[in-house]
Structure formats: C-alpha cells, structure tokens
C-alpha cells in the first residue's frame, strides 16, 4: 500500500502512517510491536486516539490476546505530589 508521509497517526509523538507501515514491514503484528519500533502510543494520551487507527492498519495475523496491557490511556494524569499526599508510604524513608 502506498503510504502518505503527510498523515500523522500518533499526534502526541508525531508518528506518520509511513513509519507505521515500515514497522509492519519489519515484522510488527501488534500495537506493542508498532510502539517499540516507532514510539507511537507513548505520548501524553498513551494511545487514546491512535490505538484504534493503528489496530486497523495491522495485518490480520495479529494476536489480540497479547494486546490487553499495551495501551492504558490515563483518565487523567496525576501529579506525583498528589499521589504522595495521604499515603502510608510516607515515613518509610523519613
């Protein structure tokens, strides 16, 4: 398939359709395979948008069972300070 270099699939990381197809040519059959080869889905939204687009581009032989954990878009990002505010981990290192 002719890839259009102007098409961005992963907007966070600015990964193009051409790069995704190159990864597939290199042997990727899963979202994780694409991710490791291109950094797609690794941006701020963690694949919320591009995951579905990439899934449609993958060859049919992909093994969906492996895919359960490779995309985990956060509902919203959390500040480290907020996570530590009221947790029992405090004191462990103090």
């Amino acid at each position: 398939m002719e890839a259009n270099t102007a098409k961005f699939i992963c907007r966070c990381q600015e990964i193009t359709e051409e790069e995704i197809y190159k990864a597939i040519e290199d042997g990727a059959t899963t979202i994780k395979g694409i991710k490791d080869r291109t950094e797609a889905t690794m941006g701020l939204c963690q694949g919320r948008t591009c995951r579905r687009l990439i899934e449609r581009m993958l060859p049919a032989s992909g093994e969906p069972s492996r895919e359960r954990y490779s995309c985990r878009p956060p509902v919203r990002t959390v500040k480290i300070g907020d996570l530590l505010k009221d947790e029992s981990s405090k004191g462990e290192f103090e």
Binding site: T77, V78, I80, E92, F93
Partner: peptide, 15 residues
C-alpha cells in the same frame, strides 16, 4: 515515588 521525591523534591509537581 516517595523515595525519588525525597532526593529530588521538584518531582512532586510533575505528572
């Protein structure tokens, strides 16, 4: 995160 923030306090403002 607690251990990291003890050494690098500015981490607390990062998501």
């Amino acid at each position: 995160l607690q251990h990291a923030a003890n050494i690098l306090p500015a981490l607390k403002d990062i998501h």
